[in-house]
Amino acid sequence: MIELDHVIVNARDRVASARLLASLLDVPWDETALGIFSAVYVNPGLTLDFITTDEDFPVEHFCFRVSDAEFDAILKRLEDAGIGWRGDVRGRNDGKVGTAHGGRNIYWDEPDKHRWEILTKSYARRPG
């Protein structure tokens, strides 16, 4: 089986971006992993390595499948942090929760414009 180990995420401020995501997901992070990264340890098999750059970079989309309890907790942390969200991938933050595909999902944009998503039921799995 092939598993994704880590992803490098470009940021204007790697520490601030990593700290924010780690706090919202309630996962550990390391401000100076390998000296140039701020690592967010999403789970035992996946790390997001934030790196600071002044170069242009594309907006990326990252989606995390979570339990219903984790969904509720993350939604509360977004609310407490004053970060808006929406139930659709595009559009304005309207505070709505998407319910397509038999689960719940929301999207929010972080300061560098990367688009984060949490969902309780994957719609990206291969059928069967």
Rank of each mutant, 00 (worst) to 15 (best):
I2E: 14
E3R: 15
L4D: 09
D5G: 12
V7Q: 12
V7W: 04
I8Q: 14
I8C: 07
V9Y: 00
N10H: 13
N10Y: 10
A11M: 01
A11G: 05
A11Y: 06
R12F: 09
D13E: 03
R14N: 09
A16E: 12
S17K: 06
A18I: 04
R19I: 02
R19T: 13
S23C: 02
P28T: 06
P28H: 02
E31Q: 12
T32S: 14
A33P: 09
A33R: 14
A33T: 12
L34R: 15
G35C: 04
G35R: 03
I36A: 14
F37P: 00
F37Y: 13
S38I: 03
A39N: 08
A39Y: 04
A39T: 06
V40W: 01
Y41T: 14
V42H: 04
N43Y: 09
G45V: 11
L46A: 00
L46S: 06
T47K: 11
T47S: 13
T47P: 00
L48G: 05
D49W: 03
D49T: 03
D49G: 08
F50V: 05
I51R: 06
E55Q: 12
F57Y: 15
P58G: 07
V59E: 13
E60L: 15
H61Y: 12
F62K: 06
F62D: 07
C63A: 15
C63E: 12
F64N: 03
F64W: 10
D68Q: 08
A69I: 01
A69R: 08
D72S: 09
D72G: 07
A73S: 11
A73Y: 01
I74V: 12
K76W: 00
K76Y: 00
R77C: 04
R77D: 06
R77F: 08
L78R: 10
D80F: 09
D80N: 13
I83N: 09
R86G: 06
G87K: 07
V89S: 08
R90D: 15
R90S: 15
G91F: 04
D94E: 03
K96V: 01
G98H: 07
A100E: 12
G103N: 00
G103C: 06
R104C: 07
I106L: 10
I106K: 00
W108I: 08
W108N: 08
W108P: 03
D109Q: 13
D109S: 12
E110R: 11
P111K: 09
D112I: 06
D112W: 05
W116A: 05
S122N: 11
R125L: 14
R126H: 14
R126C: 12
